[in-house]
Design a protein around this nucleic acid. Sequence first.
DNA 1: CTGAATGCGGACCTATCCAGTCGGATATTC
DNA 2: GAATATCCGACTGGATAGGTCCGCATTCAG
Lengths: 152, 152
Amino acid sequence: MLKLTKKADYGLMALKYLAEHPEAVALSAKDVADAYGIPAQLLAKILQQLTKKGLLRSHAGMNGGYALARDAREISAFEVILAIDGPFFITSCTKGTKACELTPSCTIKEPLARVNETIAGVLKSISIQDLAEHEHQPAKASEGHGLVALTL
Amino acid sequence: MLKLTKKADYGLMALKYLAEHPEAVALSAKDVADAYGIPAQLLAKILQQLTKKGLLRSHAGMNGGYALARDAREISAFEVILAIDGPFFITSCTKGTKACELTPSCTIKEPLARVNETIAGVLKSISIQDLAEHEHQPAKASEGHGLVALTL
DNA sequence: CTGAATGCGGACCTATCCAGTCGGATATTC
DNA sequence: GAATATCCGACTGGATAGGTCCGCATTCAG
């Protein structure tokens, strides 16, 4: 279906939340989870993962919690998704190092790899800061086809 | 992981194969499946689905099979994926009609919807014909015109 | 007319993986 | 030392993708 996992969603939401509260020294996983109604333990693991990847700084103990490791402008959505979901490929055949086994098949793979790069590029161009300041208008809701229903 | 299902891959491969064999009146699901080492019965169902969606024409009986319903240039990868995997949303929260329940949460959703549009746009710009002639050239989509712009 | 080749489509099985939970350890502060 | 945190591995339940099976309908060749 070409969609993000909930974990990635949660991770983005959490980072956005942290970016929106720069005054706080640190916010606990529970704080963020409560703010969004996310299962706290699940979010905790996600934040731990993001910490391991260097996107967050953590501090245990009372009044501990998480804070962004860098400026919100310096963290891209791409990094977050990559940290949580691992490397992604739009083609299902490219798994890790070795190419498609049913070999002559994936002539498909090559053009789609370009699509993949495009997607990655777009995600890299979006920073947590961009998510935090969401005063954008839905703009031109897809006029071409009503296929991509993004009406909220 | 943000990847296509194998079914969608198979579908694209099959359409590409049909586009590469315009001389054939019709090719059976088995023909295509054998050419790529795809499970025949599975591919059959995929092709049936594409037929229902109007991307293919089918003909039963001996020497029957499938053929493209339109010119290969007039069929986009987007249509194929949509026909097989159904509408896709990059955000996991938007399921069908109703919006995210944990509501104030998904301020995330709005910027990602734009990413979604971008992806859809790229996929719409790729035709089956593009896949068939895989002469590594079609860099047209990446030539920074609108598609990847995504003004934030 | 009969049989083979094909499309059509529902039911089903299975493996994988996501989402979420549990339990316990370690660190820090008061 | 108690309370609040992060940290981390293991487990479970459910959804979904991938694939199979079987029976029926359609077409065509002999």
